[in-house]
Amino acid sequence: TKVFYNGTYVEFNNPEKAKKYAEKVAKKVGGTFTEKNGQFHVE
């Protein structure tokens, strides 16, 4: 499961961990995250 952010991504074996990371990054940058095709995108 990949989490895309700012033109790069971090890959996780565990979708649950990926979601938590996406939430954390989104919170940090004051943005939101969306799930597309089983991957997370932070905006």
Rank of each mutant, 00 (worst) to 15 (best):
F12W: 03
T8C: 15
K27S: 09
K19I: 07
H41S: 06
F33L: 14
G38M: 04
F4M: 04
Y5R: 03
G7S: 06
K19A: 08
E16K: 11
Y9K: 04
K28A: 14
K2G: 08
E23L: 09
T1A: 08
V3N: 00
K28R: 14
K20Q: 13
K27G: 07
K19Q: 08
Q39L: 06
Y5C: 13
G30N: 10
K17I: 13
K19Y: 10
V25W: 13
N6F: 09
G7L: 05
E16N: 09
F40Q: 01
V25Q: 07
G38V: 01
F12P: 00
G30W: 05
K2D: 00
E23S: 08
Y21P: 01
K36S: 08
K2F: 10
E11N: 09
K28T: 11
K2V: 08
P15S: 10
V25A: 06
E23G: 06
V25S: 04
V42G: 01
A26I: 04
A22P: 01
K24H: 13
K28F: 12
K2P: 04
E35N: 06
T32P: 02
Y9V: 12
G7T: 04
N6M: 12
E11D: 06
K20E: 14
Q39I: 11
K2I: 07
A18V: 00
K17Q: 15
V10L: 10
K27L: 12
T32R: 10
T34S: 11
N14L: 07
N37E: 09
T32Y: 14
G38K: 05
E35K: 08
E16T: 11
K27E: 10
F40R: 00
N14V: 06
G38C: 08
K2Q: 05
G38L: 04
N37L: 08
H41I: 13
V29H: 08
F4I: 06
E43A: 10
T1N: 08
Y21I: 02
F33M: 11
V10K: 12
Y21L: 03
K19L: 10
E35F: 13
H41A: 05
P15F: 15
K2A: 06
E16Y: 10
N6C: 15
E11Y: 12
N37D: 13
K28Q: 13
K24L: 14
T34L: 10
G30S: 07
K17V: 13
T8I: 11
K2M: 08
F12A: 01
G30Y: 06
K36Y: 10
E43V: 14
T34H: 12
E16V: 11
E16A: 11
V25E: 05
T1R: 05
T34A: 08
A26Y: 03
K20G: 07
T1V: 13
F40L: 07
Q39W: 08
F33N: 03
E23R: 09
N14G: 06
K17G: 09
Y9C: 15
T34V: 13
V10P: 00
G31L: 06
P15A: 12
K36W: 09
P15H: 14
E35T: 07
V3Q: 00
Y21G: 01
A18D: 01
G38H: 05
Y21R: 02
Y9H: 06
V29S: 07
T8G: 11
G30H: 09
N6H: 10
K17F: 11
K27Y: 08
T8R: 13
E16Q: 11
V25D: 00
P15T: 09
K17R: 11
E35H: 07
E23I: 11
E16F: 10
V3P: 00
G31C: 07
V25T: 07
N13M: 12
K19E: 06
K2T: 05
T34I: 14
T8Q: 11
